[in-house]
Computed example of a mutant assay.
Amino acid sequence: MTKTIAFVLYPGLTPLDLVGPLQVMAGMATVDPSFDVVVVGSDLAPVETDTLVKLTPTHTFDQVTEPFAVIVPGGTAGAFAALADESLLSWIRHVARTAEIVGSVCGGSLILGAAGLLHGRPATTHWASRDLLRKFGAMPVTERWVEDGPVITAAGVSAGIDMALHLVARLAGEQVARTVQVMIEYDPEPPLGGIDWNSDVPEAIEPQVQAMMELGLADHPELLARLTS
């Protein structure tokens, strides 16, 4: 049987959160046709992101009800708005009952938390929002990705590629994962070197996160109060 890997689209997501791991998983599906990759949304209309590009689903939520894996990307204000999108949360809860893998990238873990899937689990997300995981009963960890049972969460944006390569190695073997890594030429060498977490983190990020929460949850003051209390 074909194993369907479903990536979730919702308004305001961060494209690289979805496209990075999707490219990795699509590479696996090219090598191993027992896997199929789809992109799901509430309908088939193009979806606004937090950049200038729009993304279009291949399937609707109603068409994909029992995926082998589901991956939820993060976003900025859109990810916070998604915390109150009951139709999205309901679909995630439903597919999580049977999915062998329930994953997220960046702020997508907050959406998993809002769906009630992280209570008592270790989880990670973008460093600026990591402590918010506690609001959903999760145990925040400082890792590129962390697994707990069927749930795997990745940290900010680019960590989704690392998580996806890990999943390919787990699902199809290390050689396939290495093949995909070479296919996408994933061999990071940042021109300024790695991040110095003791000095590179901007002090002004907390007000920016607060502003994104307020924008995304403007119509949901009770949830906003819960996240900021």
Rank of each mutant, 00 (worst) to 15 (best):
V64Q: 04
L118M: 05
G78I: 01
R121C: 01
V39N: 00
V39H: 01
P122R: 00
A26Y: 01
G113H: 14
T51V: 11
T49K: 03
T65R: 12
T60M: 05
G103T: 04
V72N: 06
V146A: 07
T153L: 05
F35L: 05
V39P: 00
S87T: 15
C106G: 01
H126L: 15
T124K: 11
S90W: 02
H94M: 14
A115K: 15
D131P: 06
G74H: 04
D148F: 13
E66N: 09
H119Q: 13
I101N: 01
V146S: 09
T56I: 03
A45L: 08
V72F: 09
R144A: 12
E66M: 09
A79T: 00
D162M: 07
P140S: 12
P140Q: 10
A84G: 08
C106L: 02
G160L: 11
L112F: 12
A45C: 04
H119G: 07
I111W: 11
P67G: 09
M163R: 09
L118A: 11
G120F: 15
S42K: 07
A115I: 15
G137M: 08
G75W: 00
L112V: 11
D162T: 07
I152T: 12
I161D: 07
L88N: 07
F136N: 08
I111F: 08
P140G: 10
H119V: 09
G27N: 01
M25Y: 09
R144G: 11
V40Q: 04
F61N: 13
A96E: 14
A138L: 03
P67C: 02
S42E: 15
L117G: 12
V40P: 08
D43E: 14
Q63Y: 02
T49H: 02
A29L: 01
D148R: 04
L112E: 14
R134A: 09
M139K: 13
V72I: 13
T125N: 08
R134E: 13
W145P: 06
T124F: 05
W91N: 07
V31W: 00
R130E: 11
T49I: 04
A69H: 02
F136C: 12
A26P: 01
H119K: 15
E147R: 14
T65M: 09
T58S: 14
A155R: 10
A154F: 12
D162F: 12
I152S: 08
T153I: 06
L117Q: 08
S129P: 00
G27I: 02
G120E: 05
R130C: 03
D43V: 08
M28S: 00
P73A: 03
V72M: 10
M163W: 07
L52A: 09
E147Q: 15
T58K: 10
S90P: 04
V47K: 03
A128C: 05
V38D: 03
L117V: 14
F136E: 04
I92Q: 05
G107H: 10
V105M: 10
V146Q: 15
A154S: 15
L89I: 06
V141L: 13
T56G: 01
D43P: 04
E48S: 10
T98E: 06
E86K: 09
L44H: 12
E86P: 08
E48C: 05
A69C: 02
G149C: 09
A69N: 08
V53W: 05
M139V: 10
H94V: 04
A138P: 11
D43R: 09
M139T: 14
